[in-house]
Design a protein around this nucleic acid. Structure first.
Lengths: 336, 336
DNA sequence: AGACGTAGTCGAAACGTTTCGATTTTGGGG
DNA sequence: CCCCAAAATCGAAACGTTTCGACTACGTCT
């Protein structure tokens, strides 16, 4: 592997001149520069970014750590990250946030290979993240609340989205509105539950714990929950599911129970995954601004790295996407 | 940022001893090691992986370059990459293969930051890839054919899958089988077309160019093609679409044209994306071993990096997944 | 003609490790 | 008590850059 020294020797100049020349520094004479560049090409010289990073003590790479690579809607998020990183001169690299000796977490974050990190992983524990963040490694967490130095948050407004979803059902006249949550300790599930509670309470509808049920955010767990929600003679007239996967499983189980959606039971999900448009009836849901989440995360990191002092948490609003599963006409509007 | 030297000074030992101690080298006495480690912890010392990589002149990171991050079925692929990388002691980082000065391509591959790369990108041109590959940077391309030094291939058997799909339709008695391809210069489309041709020819069915149509691998382009395929009084009794997206668009257009699938027209797709199970009728398709593709790519890279001389291209077989869209019972089996 | 500014080039240090040969310490045997 | 091998520690070089102060040569100004 040809190094700068090799180039310098072959071009009959010093290493420093070669270095300057290849970086188009105006201090080196045009003719010399051309010669050096020609030699570099002949030798197939490639700058060693590792050496460079070591010398200048900084790197333009930022890490994006996801719990499982390639989940369904990371696509948009990563596009946001990608675009904004590029715009800010960063190179974003994505990896899986698994722990362990040779994990990306270790290699990238603990071994000083990146300037900062964005973490979207509901599972990895808080202490892990806060212990890894430092003066030299700011971390932006997505969809989490972590109070720790050098940890910043960018989040979609899950509570607000859930509020919108539930209010939508209330507006359409439903009163026995069930909630299908995810794992109880999950941030997403908690926030969405809170929005649900707030909507009920604002509408003056009593909360009924019997109408609440939990799954695992998977389609199958939604399917299972579909039976529990209608067991013992209970019969909610609408259900707000904390994510689309479960809503879709739920849809299947309702169908099996001979219940029609939305005629017998209205249904709203969360996330707006692609499938929601294809199931029948198409699923009313809440869309998160994934692209912006990614882009804002990078921007936040950029600001921090630029030494901008007062960084505030960012909360992005969500959007209700109304389709068929939540009924068509308001039966008895509660407002207006 | 505390360096090894700081640790050494505070612990009253030399830098080399500190280095050895923190790597648990048995040459350093237990008590010394404990002292050094304690000091390191107190100072919040973190090894500088960049310096390390520079010194030892190697890195355990491999890059995975995708055309667009987070496409629908990269998920499985990346899991394969992830698992195998971990098993082989690599850290896999994923980035977008866009070109340009500060792109991942440049930063990671051209600046010697990774030991090797896996590229899955039908768009980026061949010359780009072959010019980037080198002695010190072996590249494994997925689903492409590139003849160049230091470029190796791992591929699913698209031709074979298309053959299976078409033969399946033939077995069920269809004879006027149309082909809906992607962009004509795409490797995927070409291979799948070839499998289609071979199946027809093996069954002694004449190829009819009028039954061939091209889209862009998108749902909308499939929808449009659906009208072209049935224009001018043509009426294929089955269609093999080169991917599921287009097949689904096609399904929609057939429905609009009052054609029933599979009764009027049978349909087979390719890829087995998740949606295929949810559309109605569920789509018969060809599944690629995405997990294995990823895992084999890493394995291939590992072998190359281990100095294993004779590396052969790998071709993985695909699997026909039969659902409702291709009809139910054979009408007139052509074999057996 | 001498001084001086400037364009161009150079040398050496530094970044934080690892590695290896050299040096010191230790402890046991004669 | 001394010597020696083994154990423990150390010092310095090296990895490939960048950077900065220093140096050279040369034309210009006075």
């Amino acid at each position: 592997m040809a190094s700068l020294k090799d180039v310098a020797v072959h071009a009959g100049v010093s290493v420093s001149t070669a270095s300057l020349a290849l970086r188009e520094d105006p201090a080196v004479k045009e003719v010399t520069r051309q010669r050096i560049r020609r030699v570099a090409d002949e030798l197939g010289y490639r700058p060693n970014g590792i050496a460079r990073d070591l010398k200048v003590k900084k790197t333009d790479m930022i890490a994006v750590l996801l719990h499982d690579l390639g989940g369904p809607f990371y696509s948009e998020l990563l596009r946001g990250v990608q675009d904004r990183s590029h715009q800010r001169g960063f190179t974003a690299i994505v990896a899986c946030s698994a722990k362990g000796k040779s994990s990306a977490m270790t290699r990238l974050l603990l071994e000083n290979r990146v300037a900062g990190a964005i973490i979207l992983d509901p599972v990895i524990d808080e202490s892990e993240i806060s212990s890894v963040a430092s003066e030299d490694l700011p971390i932006v967490v997505l969809d989490r609340e972590i109070q720790a130095p050098h940890v910043y948050a960018v989040s979609a407004d899950h509570e607000g989205g859930a509020f919108k979803a539930t209010t939508h059902l209330l507006d359409r006249g439903y009163r026995l509105i069930g909630f299908l949550g995810g794992p109880e300790d999950s941030f997403h599930s908690r926030m969405r539950f809170e929005g649900y509670r707030r909507a009920l309470s604002q509408a003056g509808v009593d909360f009924d714990g019997d109408l609440v049920c939990y799954g695992m955010f998977t389609e199958d767990s939604g399917y299972d929950a579909g039976f529990r929600l209608f067991a013992n003679g209970r019969h909610p007239d609408a259900i707000f599911a904390a994510n689309d996967e479960m809503a879709i499983g739920l849809l299947r189980s309702l169908e099996e129970q001979g219940l029609s959606v939305p005629d017998d039971v209205a249904l709203v999900g969360f996330d707006d995954i692609r499938l929601t448009q294809y199931v029948s009836p198409a699923l009313t849901t809440v869309r998160q601004p994934m692209y912006q989440l990614g882009s804002d995360a990078v921007e936040q990191l950029f600001q921090i790295l630029s030494g901008n002092a007062d960084i505030e948490s960012v909360m992005l609003s969500t959007e209700l996407v109304i389709r068929q599963s939540s009924g068509v006409t308001p039966r008895s509007p509660i407002r207006g």
